[in-house]
Structure formats: C-alpha cells, structure tokens
Amino acid sequence: MYLQDVIWTIALTGMSLVALGFLLIIFRASKQADEATRAASNATARKLKTWMFGILLLIFVSGSWATLHDYPIVFQDGSSGQQAVTVVGRMWSWDVIPDTIRTGVPIEFQVTSEDVNHGFAIYDPNGRILSQTQAMPGYTNRLHYTFSQPGTYTIQCLEFCGMGHAPMSYPLEVVAKGGM
C-alpha cells in the first residue's frame, strides 16, 4: 500500500466527519429551542468542546511523535557514505550519474540545479511518487532512497520551471542486485 492511499483515507474520513457534524447541526437548526433547552444545549456543547479539545490534543501529540520521531529527511551536513548519484537539473533536462542503479543498495541522490528551481521526484513504474526533493541553484539537497523492485522509474520535475516543465523527465533504470 502506498502512503498516498493512507493519506487519502484519513482525508476522506476527516472531511466526512466535518460534513457529518455540519449536517447534524443544520438539521436541528430550524427548530427553535426554549430558554431551558438552550441552557441544557450550551452545557452539552461545553462538555463536547472539552472532549473535542482532548481528542485533537491526543491526535496532535501522538501524530507529531509518530511522524517526527524517526525524522524522514536525512541530515544534510555531509555525505553519508552511501552510493552517491549526482543529479543536476537545468531548463529542461536532467543529468543523472550514474543512471542505472541496483535494488537493495541505499542511494544518496545529491540534487542541485544549474539555473532555476526544479523539483526532483521519483515516480515508480506504476506512476506513483516514491519520494522527492527540490533542485535549487546554489544548494545540494541529499535524498536517501533504497529501491526494492527493479524496473524503469521516472525522474520528473515537480517545480514549475517554464515552458519545458512538463516534459522534463528522465528514465531511471533500477536493476536487480547483481544484475549490473
């Protein structure tokens, strides 16, 4: 399962819950409450708000810990000793050296640009994004990735860079370990 599918499921669930909350209130909006009922409703609302605050706080703390404790971006303070692949973007092509890599080998993509900002995204053979970083003039971004499946992947520019932005792609061959 792709991470995108998890994100999509969470988003649909969250947006549906918001919609449900609105619909519940809208269906009860037209009937006017008397003072006693209104006071009781306000008390219920205060309790509900406290619960909502607690739930959101729990999501905030646990979600932040879950997504940040194993920080998904490597430190950028130097080479990691992994196999380096240098990537240079320019309007509108990529230089990738070497352009064939093996599965199971941790790769460090060292990504930069000669001219404007580009986006270095790796699409798998199914057309889904696996990871990405920016290619920026004057800076080298280090992106770590280990391919598990052989195939023809696609490097695609994801930062708008002018007329030739959409076709700015490059085939990246990933071969099975020992297959080179």
Binding site: L3, A11, I73, I129, S131
Partner: peptide, 25 residues
C-alpha cells in the same frame, strides 16, 4: 464548512513525511 473541511487535507500535506509524496501534486 469549506474552511474546516479544507484544512484536513491541508494539515495532512503540512506533514513532512506526507509532503515527500504529496508536494506539488
């Protein structure tokens, strides 16, 4: 509703791990 529901996918995109696969899509 637009503001509250729209913020759900926005927050998901504002998460580093998710941004690696959602940024500029």
């Amino acid at each position: 509703f637009g503001w509250a529901a729209g913020i759900v996918p926005a927050i998901l995109d504002g998460t580093v791990r998710n941004n690696l696969v959602m940024h500029n899509t």
